[in-house]
Structure formats: C-alpha cells, structure tokens
Computed example of a mutant assay.
Amino acid sequence: MVVPRIEGQGILQADWDTSAWLDDLPCTEAGTLLQEVRRLVVVSPHPDDEVLGCAGIMQAAVANDIAVCVVSVTDGEACYPDQPLWPAARLRDARRRELAHAMRALGLDATHVLPLGLPDGRVASHEAELAAQLAAQSLPGDLLVAPWVRDAHPDHEAAGRAAQAAARGRGVRALQYPVWAWHWLDPHAATAPWPAAARIPMGPAALARKHQAMQAFATQTGAVDGLDCDPILPDHVTARFRRPYEVLIG
C-alpha cells in the first residue's frame, strides 16, 4: 500500500465542494451524538488539532452541560525545526497560550485541558504510555474522540491507536476525526474511505466561534514575526476546516 504524504498544497476546498461521497455522508446532529454521554474527551496530538476537528462537538457539549476534557498530547514544539527565532522552548510556551485562547473562544478554559507534554514528532515511541494514561483517566459514560488512525501524520496515527486501545480496555465509546486526511484523500473516489462516518453540522454562531478559535493559533497560521518559512496552516489548509460541519468516523 502506498503511504500518503503530507506535502504540497494538497486537495483544495474547491475540490471537496464537489465531492459526491463527502456530500452523501449522513448528517447527525451533535446533540444526538452526545445523548447519554457524561463527558467528551478529545485527544489532540498538537495544539490546534482539537479545534480543527472537534470545535463543533465541543461547543455542543458545553451547550448541553456535558463535561469536556481536551487531552493535549504534545505542545507542538517541533513544528519549525529550522527556524532559529522559534526554538522548541518558545514554541512550547506560545502554543500553550494559543490553546488557552482558543478554548476561551469556544466557551471553555484551561481547566478543560490536560497537557501531557509528550515529545512532538515522537508520539509513536510513547504510544503504550499514552494508551495507559488515557485508560487510567477514562470514566463510564465518556465519549473518546481522537484522530483517524490513517491520517498520514505519525503523531495523529499513534494518538488514534492509543485512544482506540484505551477505549477497548475501558469499554467506552470512541470516534475518530480526520485532519490531514483532507490533504490527500481523493474527493472524487467512488466510495467514502470510511465504512461509517457522519457530518456533524454547525450553526452560524458555532461556526464563527470555531473560526475565532482557529485564528488563535498564530504560530500555525503565520501571523507572527520572525517566521521565515511557510506556516503549517496557510489559508488553503484552514479552508478545509471553515466548512459548516465536521466529520466524525465510527
């Protein structure tokens, strides 16, 4: 099997706008998905993944008085290894602040974030440890949402596998969210890449809050001084996450 690579511009949102299989995914309201859920646990490999993939369902949980916990696996400190003005220590501090600002935009705060501080880029080397930590803090009635295990980013895939292992061990429900899959999946494939998935719609107010939360990640969008390279999340990438819905797998 060819391993997809995250390089170049990837698939543009204009192509996703004409994807028949994406348009055919069933719609499920977040409130329906959260029925009988006591706590929503979002596993985020790097600060910004939780907002890109799960801002809508996190807001729905808040609106329904459901507890929310964001497990922030790494601090994303290795995203610009060749930028001398943005060393790992500075990025670690900046991205934690950005995550706090993003949470506030969604009606949450730092008390909803559990930072683990695992090394960015090396989550797979700590996968068993992560699975054990997720299992240890899982509770009956949790809904565990983590990245798709084939997302093509090694940290995302390792976090997804760890979450699945924890969910199986603790008997809690688990779903997955794609992030980098939108960069390389075929929008015009004959069928959807997932046997079960749904679009979770967001209303205008929730969508506006998601957009505000995305803008909090200035180091990733390039809205900072001293960054002498392309940002991780240029406009053509964030366009994939400005849709009025999110996709959850499972």
Rank of each mutant, 00 (worst) to 15 (best):
M1P: 13
M1T: 14
V2G: 11
V3L: 13
R5H: 15
R5G: 10
R5S: 14
R5W: 13
I6W: 04
E7V: 11
G8P: 08
Q13K: 12
A14Y: 11
W16I: 05
W16R: 09
W16L: 10
W16Q: 07
D17N: 13
A20R: 15
W21T: 00
L22F: 13
L22R: 04
D23N: 15
D23C: 12
C27T: 14
T28Y: 07
E29N: 12
G31D: 12
L33P: 00
L34Y: 09
Q35L: 14
V37C: 11
V43G: 00
V43P: 00
V43S: 02
V43D: 00
H46F: 02
H46Q: 05
P47D: 06
P47A: 07
P47I: 02
D48H: 01
D49Y: 05
D49N: 04
E50R: 02
V51M: 05
G53V: 03
C54L: 04
I57D: 01
A63G: 12
S72I: 07
S72M: 15
V73S: 01
T74R: 00
A78D: 12
C79Q: 09
Y80G: 01
P81T: 10
P81R: 08
Q83K: 11
Q83W: 09
L91Y: 07
R96H: 14
R96G: 03
R96F: 08
R97K: 14
L99G: 00
L99A: 06
A100W: 09
A102L: 10
M103I: 09
G107L: 02
G107R: 02
L108A: 08
T111C: 10
H112F: 07
H112N: 15
H112A: 14
V113C: 03
L114R: 13
L114T: 11
L116V: 06
L116S: 05
G121P: 04
E127H: 06
L130P: 00
Q137H: 14
Q137E: 13
Q137F: 13
L139I: 07
V145S: 04
P147V: 00
W148K: 03
R150F: 14
R150M: 12
D151K: 02
A162G: 06
R168Y: 14
G169V: 05
Y177L: 05
P178I: 00
A181E: 05
W182E: 02
P187K: 08
H188I: 07
A189C: 09
A190C: 08
A192W: 05
W194F: 14
A197R: 03
A205L: 15
A208G: 09
R209L: 02
H211I: 12
Q212H: 13
Q215S: 14
Q215W: 10
A218M: 11
T221H: 00
L227N: 02
D228Q: 14
D230Y: 10
P231Q: 05
D235V: 11
H236I: 05
A239N: 06
A239C: 08
F241E: 03
R243Y: 08
P244M: 06
